[in-house]
């Protein structure tokens, strides 16, 4: 069929393969991604002590910042959030609920404007005991934050026992976090 029309020269033909090759690369990444379930994506840190980090407080909120020393004795939750992150708004009521039940929740405010973060907390409520402001995302790298929101369960020895990627829903609390927190006590 292709001989009926005038075929281009070979280098020109190869050029037309470029889109397919690019897609093959993307497809390969997607395939690798498929083998990694985000909900169970084992963080390199699970079972290990929390990484060393030290964050200044969120400007204007008052209170201290957040550092590894604050997590030495648990159980506590560490929640990574940002005001620009829509799912964070979705999960916020669950955090409020946890805080109301007496669970200590610390926050890492990830790559955020302090003003916007404060507005976020004022509007939706502030469930956090301590909030560290991670403006340039350095602490996020230490923690291996993939995206916001993420939530970590820290046990009484300051070890990370669980990592939740994405917004916390009511059933996540009941099925995972609350049992784990009870266990970590």
């Amino acid at each position: 069929m292709s001989t009926a029309t005038r075929p281009g020269s070979t280098p020109r033909r190869l050029l037309f393969l470029v889109p397919a090759v690019l897609f093959a690369v993307v497809g390969a990444f997607l395939a690798v991604g498929l083998t990694r379930d985000p909900a169970r994506l084992p963080s390199a840190l699970v079972g290990k002590p929390v990484p060393q980090f030290s964050l200044p407080p969120l400007e204007g909120r008052g209170g201290a910042g957040l550092s590894a020393a604050d997590l030495a004795s648990g159980p506590v939750l560490v929640n990574v959030f940002a005001s620009w992150c829509v799912p964070c708004r979705v999960e916020h009521p669950q955090l409020m609920r946890l805080a109301a039940q007496g669970v200590t929740v610390h926050g890492i405010n990830y790559k955020d404007e302090p003003k916007a973060a404060l507005a976020f907390l004022r509007d939706l409520g502030d469930p956090y005991a301590l909030v560290g402001a991670d403006r340039d995302g350095r602490a996020g790298i230490e923690w291996g934050v993939y995206g916001v929101p993420e939530t970590y369960v820290i046990d009484r020895d300051g070890r990370i026992t669980y990592r939740h990627v994405g917004p916390l829903m009511a059933h996540d609390l009941e099925q995972k976090l609350l049992p784990l927190l009870a266990e970590a006590r």
Partner: peptide, 22 residues
């Protein structure tokens, strides 16, 4: 809603989706 990763939320769906895309 959070990231491309959730592609694999249901593995059967993920594989099917990838096959369709391919």
């Amino acid at each position: 809603l959070t990231s491309v990763h959730a592609f694999a939320v249901d593995p059967a769906r993920g594989v099917f989706i990838l096959a369709l895309l391919v």
